[in-house]
């Protein structure tokens, strides 16, 4: 009989603890890159090599971190330094001959009123293929002010992130640029 009593006590303790935790529960907590800390997007860090720890440290194949272009903040430049390697030789179109992305994950298309004669007259949309991107941060670094407008940032993709208890990118990140926050507050 005494055994039953103790089991009941243990169950009561478990139920009490669970009730406490459930009451405290605040939706899902996810990892996100804090772009104002990330050296690739942080302001006043012009001319620094891009950091690619998000690619190399993530436990998910190809990384759960991807570069995301916030279209409304994009300057839509003809010579986008995140799309082109702007220090490569200029070709006959007056554009740099090389692209920046090592995985060719960025596509561009002319938008709005298009001048087919002179590519410099147009606005361009830059679309990142998230299945190709591995979050190496090269384009993020080049898009940043003052060179660009900082529309591209690194973000954790929740459908890929396995929500480790201790993010292995954070473990390696010298800027402590990953943070946990409730899903409704995360980008």
């Amino acid at each position: 009989m005494s055994q039953d009593l103790t089991r009941r006590t243990v169950l009561a303790v478990l139920a009490g603890g669970a009730a406490f935790l459930v009451k405290k529960a605040n939706g899902q907590i996810v990892w996100q890159v804090n772009a104002s800390r990330c050296i690739n997007s942080r302001l006043f860090e012009a001319g620094v090599e891009a950091c690619n720890l998000c690619t190399t440290e993530c436990v998910v194949a190809l990384s759960a971190v991807r570069a995301v272009n916030e279209y409304s903040k994009c300057g839509r430049c003809n010579i986008c330094p995140a799309y082109f390697n702007i220090t490569s030789a200029v070709n006959e179109l007056g554009q740099p001959s090389e692209k920046l992305c090592p995985r060719d994950a960025i596509a561009r298309k002319a938008i709005g009123k298009v001048d087919p004669e002179d590519p410099a007259n147009n606005f361009y949309e830059y679309i990142i293929d998230e299945e190709k991107c591995d979050g190496c941060g090269k384009c993020v670094m080049k898009c940043k002010e003052p060179l660009g407008l900082g529309s591209i940032t690194l973000r954790v993709r929740y459908d890929k992130c396995v929500n480790c208890n201790y993010c292995s990118i954070l473990k390696a990140c010298p800027q402590n640029a990953l943070m946990q926050l409730p899903i409704d507050q995360a980008l």
Partner: peptide, 15 residues
Amino acid sequence: GRFDGIDPAGFTGCC
């Protein structure tokens, strides 16, 4: 003017 990322006679960067 024209774009050029290497030659200083051109203008570099995005804009």
